[in-house]
Simulated scan of single mutants.
Amino acid sequence: MNERRALHESIAGAAVLGTLAVVWGIAAQSRVLLFDGAFILLGIVLSALSLMAARAAADVPSARFPFGKAAVTPLAIAVQGVALLGTLLYAGVDAVAVITAGGADVEPGTVLAYGLVTMTCSYALARWLTHRAPDSELVAAEVAQWRAGALLSLVFAAGGGLALALSSVGDVVRYVDPVLVLVACLVLLPIPLRLLRAAGLELLEAEPPAEVRRVLADAVTSVRTEFGLPEPFVRSTKLGSRLYVEVDFVVPDGAWDVTGEDRVRRALIGRLEPLGYDLWANVELTADPELAR
């Protein structure tokens, strides 16, 4: 519930700031403000996508989707990454075209004022969303965008201030607007790349984050000690809010029964539940090493 509420609030904040940026950019004839407004309004579409993904991921498993729809979370994050990367590439090409055409006339004081206003708003919203749903990956993606927006606004403010200081030096001011767009693209570029990397790793069923691996290793060691079991084969991966764990122990023939295996499974699950994931754990005790590998 907190996750969805936070996503709704992110959408509302983006609508206000995006509209402000577009109107301000049109009035000031500033490409950098229009780019920022378009970037923020794109965030509304991506936030709506995150909201739909959160609803789908929360659906219970069904006959058609026996493992649920947890994969929709990294899929939505990947779409966010692609959309943001495409926007940055387009803006970068347009800025280069403006520079080669001789720049553009923009009032640097407008850029400075806009940067200060949006930096304050973006940073405040990022902090608010962090407290709203601290454990949500979808909200974390939103927070990353708002923090980047705050940093970007700081760049705008600094660029506007520098342009004011250099306003008496030839035609330097004419290049401030497109150069700031290029700087913004470079500042924001790590965000879509990071989103695409994280989503790709999850969709390819890579190992979970280091903290999860550490807790899993500690849990397995504790269970081994409690039940006197040998070193197992351990496999794990994370898909959205779901954590898949498979632990296979090779034991002497006839030494364990189903009831004993269930005790081991419950002991492991109990140690992993504090992680807060939707846990799908499979623990097997087998006498055949080939089945464990």
Rank of each mutant, 00 (worst) to 15 (best):
A70D: 07
V220C: 09
S168Y: 14
P108N: 05
G240Y: 00
Y114G: 04
R213N: 07
D177K: 03
L116G: 07
R213M: 09
G270S: 11
D94H: 07
V258S: 03
V98K: 00
V220K: 00
T286E: 08
L75K: 07
D288K: 07
G170T: 08
E231Q: 11
V106E: 07
A126S: 13
L46V: 08
W128S: 01
L243W: 05
V106H: 01
A12Q: 07
A83L: 14
D177S: 02
R271K: 15
P178L: 02
G161A: 14
D262S: 11
V176A: 07
V98L: 09
G270R: 12
L151H: 05
E9N: 10
E284L: 11
W24K: 05
S222H: 12
V220N: 01
A113Y: 09
D94M: 09
R235V: 14
V181G: 06
E202L: 07
A267Y: 08
A287P: 12
L195A: 11
V106M: 11
A6R: 06
V45Q: 00
E107P: 04
R174D: 04
A281T: 15
G92C: 07
M52C: 12
R64T: 11
A144K: 14
R197D: 04
E290T: 13
G159C: 09
Y244P: 06
E246S: 05
L188F: 13
K69N: 08
V220A: 08
T110Y: 09
A126R: 03
V223W: 00
A71S: 09
R5L: 08
L272F: 09
F35K: 05
R214P: 06
L268P: 02
T237R: 10
N282P: 06
P208F: 02
A150C: 11
V264A: 03
G25H: 06
A126Y: 00
A58Y: 12
L204D: 00
K238G: 12
V139I: 02
L129T: 01
